Measured scan of single mutants.
Amino acid sequence: MSIQHFRVALIPFFAAFCLPVFAHPETLVKVKDAEDQLGARVGYIELDLNSGKILESFRPEERFPMMSTFKVLLCGAVLSRVDAGQEQLGRRIHYSQNDLVEYSPVTEKHLTDGMTVRELCSAAITMSDNTAANLLLTTIGGPKELTAFLHNMGDHVTRLDRWEPELNEAIPNDERDTTMPAAMATTLRKLLTGELLTLASRQQLIDWMEADKVAGPLLRSALPAGWFIADKSGASERGSRGIIAALGPDGKPSRIVVIYTTGSQATMDERNRQIAEIGASLIKHW
């Protein structure tokens, strides 16, 4: 067993022997300050990975656009099909120029040879490739089937209704393509630590998230040396920005953090900075 597999395998073990964890309200002060700075709603939740206990939250049951954070859930659904023998990570999918949508930095380079399901999930999570996400959605039956998968997991909140890039419209009070911080955190925890996926698939999912290449300005920018993070960011219209992450010190994840914001007129750089500052406060008061 590799060191990485050993780390994931021990998560349920540590759950039975973990020391108590305590929240620090200073982080919530920073979350509220971020709302003021951005002139927008901010949703935040911090969940103990082992016990599932909510350590701190702000607007945990308000809806926010999922943006590209849905791609982790999508690849979780794909992996569940792999575990059930209904899909193969090595299966090659061919597509055409007509399938390409905006922001497809990986898939646009493989029009001649296609990409495997594994490569598409990697592109969707690590590079947030939109065409990769659409091709993967097709393999499971579309957005409604992803919503059904989540319902079967016990998540009756999170929903995907449209494809890339339309799902990023982020219209106020529109429940399409939205989640709540509490629902997303719970669902992510189930995918990473529960029995829904095999150990190999849980490890694959967290490996893809750990290799995320487009979330550098967010929580990763505040991460001390030696800390672990596996994450997925998202951005969409109407000043929306978000990130879902499993992180912790000593090279292993111990908490789930979900941050969403929407309705801001601030620049992308400012939205990134506010999320990074929330992360810095979280780490300082860990």
Rank of each mutant, 00 (worst) to 15 (best):
Q86C: 13
R176C: 06
E145K: 09
R118T: 12
L196I: 15
S201H: 05
V117G: 00
P12L: 14
A9L: 11
E237N: 15
G234S: 04
L19M: 12
A245C: 05
A9D: 05
N168V: 03
R41T: 05
S201C: 06
E237L: 14
K284N: 10
P172T: 07
A9V: 10
Q4P: 08
W286R: 00
R118S: 13
R7D: 08
F149N: 02
L160P: 00
S80L: 12
D250V: 06
T179D: 00
K252M: 10
A235C: 03
A16T: 12
E87W: 02
S80Q: 15
E169V: 08
V8R: 14
D231L: 02
R159G: 01
L218F: 02
A230G: 07
S236E: 02
R202M: 07
N134A: 01
Q203D: 14
F6Y: 09
A124G: 04
S254C: 10
F17V: 11
P224A: 01
P249A: 03
G85D: 07
G251Y: 07
G234D: 04
D113A: 10
G251H: 10
L197R: 01
A211T: 09
L136R: 00
Y103C: 08
L150V: 08
T116E: 12
N168C: 04
V101G: 04
I244V: 14
V42G: 00
I229M: 04
E277K: 07
D212Y: 00
A245V: 06
D48S: 05
S221A: 09
G239V: 01
K30N: 07
T262H: 08
Q97A: 14
Q4E: 13
L136A: 03
D129R: 00
Q4H: 12
M67I: 04
D269I: 09
A15S: 15
T267K: 08
T27L: 03
T116A: 05
D161A: 03
T178F: 01
H156N: 13
L89I: 10
M127Q: 11
S281H: 08
C18A: 14
L160V: 10
P12D: 07
R91M: 02
S57V: 06
A132G: 02
G85T: 07
M268F: 05
M268G: 04
H24T: 08
M66S: 01
L223K: 02
E87A: 04
L188T: 06
T138A: 15
P12E: 07
A15R: 02
R189L: 11
Q88A: 11
I206K: 10
I11H: 06
A200W: 07
D177V: 01
P65Y: 01
P217Q: 10
I125L: 12
E35Q: 04
L10C: 12
C18G: 13
E119D: 08
H151E: 13
H94Q: 13
Y103K: 02
S264G: 14
L38G: 05
F13W: 12
I206T: 12
G43V: 09
P60E: 15
V117L: 11
M67A: 08
N98D: 13
T187C: 03
L199V: 15
F13P: 08
Y103W: 09
A280R: 06
R176Q: 11
Q265K: 14
P249K: 06
G226N: 06
G226T: 07
H94P: 08
L219H: 01
R241G: 06
L79N: 01
A185G: 12
F58M: 05
L192I: 13
P143G: 01
M66R: 00
K213A: 13
M127Y: 11
V8I: 15
A84I: 14
M66A: 02
A132S: 10
R162L: 02
D36A: 15
A222I: 14
S128N: 00
R118A: 14
I3D: 10
I256N: 00
Q86N: 14
I243N: 00
L160F: 06
V78R: 00
T261Q: 06
A183S: 09
L55G: 02
G76S: 10
E270A: 07
D250E: 12
Q4K: 15
R238F: 11
K284E: 10
K190Q: 07
E62D: 09
E119S: 07
R92H: 12
H285Q: 06
A170L: 12
P12V: 14
T27A: 02
R162G: 06
A246S: 04
T179M: 00
G43S: 08
I283M: 07
Q203H: 10
N152D: 15
I256A: 01
H94S: 14
L218N: 02
D207Q: 11
R273S: 09
S96W: 08
R159A: 02
T116G: 02
L219D: 01
A225T: 12
Q86E: 13
V258G: 01
Y44S: 00
A211W: 03
L89V: 04
E56G: 08
L218R: 03
I93M: 06
S51G: 07
R92C: 07
M127T: 09
P181H: 00
R81G: 05
V106S: 06
L135W: 00
D33A: 14
F6W: 10
P12K: 12
A183H: 11
T187H: 01
L196C: 15
L10G: 10
S104L: 00
S2N: 08
L146A: 03
K109M: 10
G76C: 10
L135G: 01
P249R: 04
L196H: 15
L136E: 00
T178I: 01
R241V: 04
S236M: 02
L282R: 01
G216K: 07
I243W: 02
L150C: 08
T262D: 13
A211E: 14
A84C: 07
M268D: 07
S221G: 05
L79W: 00
F14Q: 02
G251T: 05
M153K: 04
T187K: 10
L10V: 11
D177R: 00
H94A: 11
T147V: 07
L218Q: 02
L197M: 10
P165A: 04
I11Y: 15
Y103G: 07
N50D: 13
E175T: 11
D207N: 09
A182R: 15
P172Y: 11
T187R: 04
F64C: 00
S80C: 10
P217S: 09
A84K: 15
F149D: 02
L167V: 11
H24V: 07
S2G: 09
L137W: 01
K30E: 11
A246T: 07
S281G: 03
D174G: 03
I244S: 12
E175C: 10
Q88H: 13
V214S: 08
L89F: 11
S57K: 10
I11N: 06
W163A: 06
S80A: 13
T179I: 00
T112M: 02
Y103A: 07
L196Q: 12
N272D: 15
P165T: 05
E164V: 00
T126E: 15
G85E: 09
I244M: 04
A222Q: 15
I275F: 13
E237S: 12
D161N: 04
C75W: 08
L223I: 11
D83R: 01
K144S: 15
G242A: 10
T186R: 13
K213P: 02
L218S: 03
A246E: 02
D207L: 13
H110D: 08
I243T: 01
V29A: 15
P249V: 02
D212E: 04
D231V: 02
E210A: 13
L137P: 10
P65V: 02
V101E: 10
P165H: 03
L74A: 03
P25T: 09
P224I: 01
Q204L: 13
T193R: 09
E87F: 06
I45L: 12
I243F: 03
E175G: 05
L10R: 09
L38F: 09
A84E: 15
N98M: 14
R7L: 06
S96G: 15
H151R: 14
D174N: 03
P143S: 02
A246L: 13
P172G: 09
